[in-house]
């Protein structure tokens, strides 16, 4: 902000506002300002338009089903009955499963990279993890179908069933495509996001906090766990929200391994469906306005949830880095 203030003083003469405006217009400054302002405004408009479109296009379905859309579980395009619960269930279960694996692994990695590792190793690993974040989701889906599912089928699910088979979540036959497979693929996909954001908020914790703790005789781990991590905790929570929003909206990789069966089964080994994948699979085939409108309403649900999560995450992350800057 201070930059802008200095520059404005440099251009505008101390005279009245009118003189200054005319001068700046002649110099081309107002034009340049307007062009960039329009671009910035366009971004705002596009985001508003995204919301407006999913909201207005789903009107038919919203009026017909009301809130019951979210809590009924019959999805029958032929009869014109649409309930979103199986998709919401699948989305939530796979995302939670993904987080259960990804959060400990991601935070552990972030701690290693920012606190424990020698700088060179840390930089190399960070580079690799950034590359990992760039791998397209359809590639994860490809590996999910042909590599991960067979591995789960042969080496992971049988021991899991023999050890925890008495739990309802591990009962029933396993066909490969399932909520479980989708959750595992998601966990692999979202780790890089947790690592890169958490690492940054950890690095934003002021150095003197660490030094004070070390000077009192605490070990590196004690310093990390009792001083650095608590300081960065809200930012870390923010990174988890960001990752959750990603997981909820992830389409391709999930579609390829979840089985695309709209049902609610207690077992994780059963096939299911998610909001994003039902949209991907049925949108182009949807016949009739109500069908299309119901699919768009699913999009609205997804948009709403990720919107709130992203908003919260940003606030948490901004709050943490501010705290770091002040103390």
């Amino acid at each position: 902000m201070s930059t802008t203030a200095t520059l404005d003083q440099g251009v505008a003469p101390p005279g009245g506002r009118v003189v200054s405006f005319r001068r700046r217009l002649r110099a081309g400054d107002e034009v340049a300002y307007l062009i960039t302002l329009i671009a910035a405004g366009t971004i705002f408009l596009i985001t508003a338009l995204v919301f407006y479109e999913v909201f207005s296009q789903s009107a038919l379905s919203r009026h017909k089903f009301g809130w019951s859309f979210l809590i009924t579980s019959v999805w029958d395009p032929v009869a014109g009955t649409f309930g979103a619960l199986p998709f919401i269930y699948g989305t939530v279960v796979t995302s939670i499963l993904g987080l259960l694996v990804a959060v400990p692994e991601g935070i552990g990695s972030a701690i290693f990279l920012s606190e424990m590792a020698p700088p060179r190793l840390s930089n190399a690993c960070t580079f690799l993890i950034e590359l990992l974040a760039a791998v397209p989701s359809v590639i994860y889906g490809l590996l999910g179908i042909f590599i991960l599912v067979p591995i789960l089928e042969r080496h992971v699910v049988p021991p899991l069933k023999s050890a925890f088979g008495w739990l309802p979540i591990f009962q029933g036959p396993f066909y490969g495509v399932s909520l479980f497979s989708a959750g595992i693929v998601l966990s692999i996909m979202i780790v890089p996001f947790i690592v890169s954001v958490s690492r940054e908020v950890l690095l934003a914790v002021p150095r003197d906090q660490r030094e004070a703790s070390l000077a009192l005789g605490a070990s590196q781990w004690q310093t990390t766990w009792r001083v650095v991590v608590p300081n960065a905790s809200s930012g870390i929570v923010g990174s988890i929200f960001l990752a959750l929003a990603r997981a909820l909206g992830e389409t391709m990789a999930v579609t390829m391994v979840i089985g695309n069966t709209p049902q609610i089964k207690a077992s994780l080994l059963a096939p299911g469906d998610s909001i994003a994948s039902v949209i991907a699979n049925q949108f182009t085939e949807a016949t009739g306005d109500l069908y299309l409108s119901a699919l768009i309403e699913l999009g609205l649900v997804l948009f709403g949830v990720t919107f709130v999560l992203n908003g919260l995450a940003r606030i948490l992350i901004i709050a943490t880095s501010r705290k770091g800057a002040h103390s």
Binding site: I279, G299, F307, N310, G311
Partner: peptide, 20 residues
């Protein structure tokens, strides 16, 4: 506002962009 909106747009699931 613009920064915030940009972040939110970045977080919109890609499938929703497809619908729009």
């Amino acid at each position: 506002v613009i920064r915030y909106v940009t972040d939110l747009l970045n977080g919109v699931p890609s499938i929703v962009i497809g619908i729009v």
